[in-house]
Write a protein that binds this DNA or RNA. Structure first.
Lengths: 345, 345
DNA sequence: CAAAAAATGATAGACGTCTATCATTTTTGC
DNA sequence: GCAAAAATGATAGACGTCTATCATTTTTTG
């Protein structure tokens, strides 16, 4: 029950408080011998730094920057809301965000360059599967600023961690849900992607195809539509496709822009099974109305939370919290979260 | 960015630090007028007590007690693990747990009585839908110990809050999953409950029946089996039922003891769709093996976490954290959490 | 071996809150 | 208006850590 303090550690190690402090806070000017003695005492007594006291003394503040794709994408609007809320809720923490043109490597690079030299404690960026960002990413991390990728990954060696769902698993999940819902009968599934240069979209597609091929051989896939996450485009393409393929049994939309899909479906007498991603407002409504059947969500609240905790651990140089994976979550019309309440007083 | 301290508040209110402290910590001996001035200053400046500093000064420790049903129930074993882990992880917090015979009102009452007068900061109890516990529950809460119900509710007026999923929603979710998986064809679903005196089981049953009746009229329900959450009993009953009803298309097990169900299914050539509750080890295996199709989980980690946060807020007399609802979560074989890693070093 | 460099010790003040004590002022009751 | 009671003020010490400074000791170097 009793927690040893750094004073206890110093006593046990036979050194002064100052030396113990120099060791645990890596301030240098310590002999190897002293270092060993202190570290031994630390593990011996099971010393754990009292973060509350430390923060109190330091009046430490953190500044984290999020680089998010701009545009009318409802999902990223949600992400932004969550970031703002977290910025309010967290002590000693300011969260900034920068809008970056979506799917645009050059723009992203420019914005990353702009962060160099600024007083920042961490960067979270919605990644692109591109290699041209490496210099900027390395520069940031070289100056001690951790970079994590959020929602869509960067190349593995260019970021400290990826915070997001396993999109292959998400695609598989969608496939199994739709597959099972065919009840053993054959079917034709329409896939609707945003942009296959985005890693997350590719992964979802891959997972989906795998499961269908393996476990639901009676189901065939109609030619993929790339809707660029653009509602208008999607509406048009899907309306056409629905007209030409009256036997379509299901739709899996693995990107954004689903309000276009809703519009296309609404005028339809015969409605296929529909699975989409992200529980944004219009998806929730469509689920309630029976227009969508499954929504696969990545729990953005948890992602932001995990990203912040991780960046803090990285900049504080403490062991990061156990990475509990963020799993794709399935919503039906029956297990929807109730309306978020007003600000509690 | 700057957070006002209590000293700032005192200055703004035109009183001494001591008086401001008396007001915010409700120590009494303060005139109405001073109280008003201080409270005004608090809202004016947006003062929020620095919890880190407060805890540091107090060396406050918390002791919370969990009353859990005993027995070999894998789900409650999981709960227990989580409680132990949280007890390790949380600073200044000891978590105790007491095994109570399952579904036994008298035993529960006795154990609650044993807690009276003990130095406890909160009690979390897996509830029973019984009224005989009221005196003990009220006695505890009368002496300032908050009581929350966990997983299965107590009567509303006998506890401060309920932490658990909406079991009606869980039942509906199961119904829709199985219903959709019939692909529009008729079917016969077998329901398997533990004990219908348990509130959570009744709720799930009700939700399930509702959705089937409303949205899947082609599906009929076979007579309910009450398995008392006992694997052996369940294996026997289900083996019989499977033999007598070869046309069974699906099974919904809304209680525990599913290893018995697994045994019954294993010897079966033709396998119905299966939905069960709680992602315990054997359920996970059965899912991977294709024996189960859907597992509905209540995220026990989040529940324990929420229960602890809430009890702390209650005993500290601070506004409780916004109650983000705990939703039934659906697992397929494709979105299973990876093995929990070993203790990070 | 002396001078320079490196390592160590001692310690004070700060962070914001809580607890406690004691002196002083204001209000109440008769 | 006087005593008792209530309210208020002032302040010191503690919680565990960080930061900083300065004196002292030990080690290295030429």
């Amino acid at each position: 029950m009793y927690s040893p303090t750094l004073t206890d550690v110093a006593r046990a190690a036979g050194v002064s408080y100052a030396t113990a402090d120099r060791v645990v806070n890596r301030r240098g000017s310590v002999s190897e011998k002293a270092m060993r003695k202190v570290n031994a005492a630390v593990t011996d007594l099971g010393y754990i730094r009292n973060v509350a006291a430390a923060n109190l003394a330091q009046k430490r503040t953190y500044r984290f920057v999020f680089l998010l794709p701009d545009g009318p994408n409802a999902f990223f609007q949600t992400i932004l809301q969550i970031i703002k809320a977290q910025g309010q809720a967290r002590e000693n923490t300011t969260l900034d965000h920068i809008d970056v043109p979506a799917f645009d490597e050059d723009a992203l690079r420019t914005h990353l360059a702009g962060l160099r030299g600024q007083k920042i404690d961490g960067v979270a960026v919605v990644g692109l599967d591109a290699n041209g960002l490496a210099p900027e990413l390395n520069a940031l991390q070289g100056q001690g600023v951790p970079v994590v990728s959020l929602i869509s990954d960067l190349p593995h060696d260019q970021r400290a961690a990826y915070i997001g769902i396993d999109n292959i698993a998400a695609g598989k999940t969608a496939a199994r849900l739709l597959g099972l819902a065919h009840g053993g009968q054959p079917g034709q599934v329409q896939l609707l992607a945003g942009d296959l240069t985005a890693r997350d979209h590719r992964d979802r597609l891959e997972g989906f195809q795998q499961v269908i091929a393996t476990d639901f051989p009676a189901i065939t896939l109609l030619p993929l539509i790339e809707g660029r996450d653009d509602s208008a485009l999607i509406q048009k393409a899907m309306t056409d496709r629905l007209a030409t393929h009256p036997n379509m049994t299901a739709i899996y939309s693995l990107g954004a822009g689903n309000s276009g899909l809703i519009d296309a479906l609404q005028s339809q007498p015969q409605r296929p099974l529909v699975a989409v991603h992200e529980l944004v407002a219009h998806a929730k409504t469509a689920l309630t109305d029976g227009l969508f059947h499954f929504v696969i969500d990545q729990r953005p609240e948890e992602e932001i939370d995990a990203a912040l905790n991780l960046m803090r651990a990285l900049i504080d140089n403490v062991p990061p919290p156990p990475a509990k994976p963020i799993l794709p979550t399935i919503y039906l019309r029956d297990n929807l979260p109730p309306q978020p309440e007003q600000e509690p007083i």
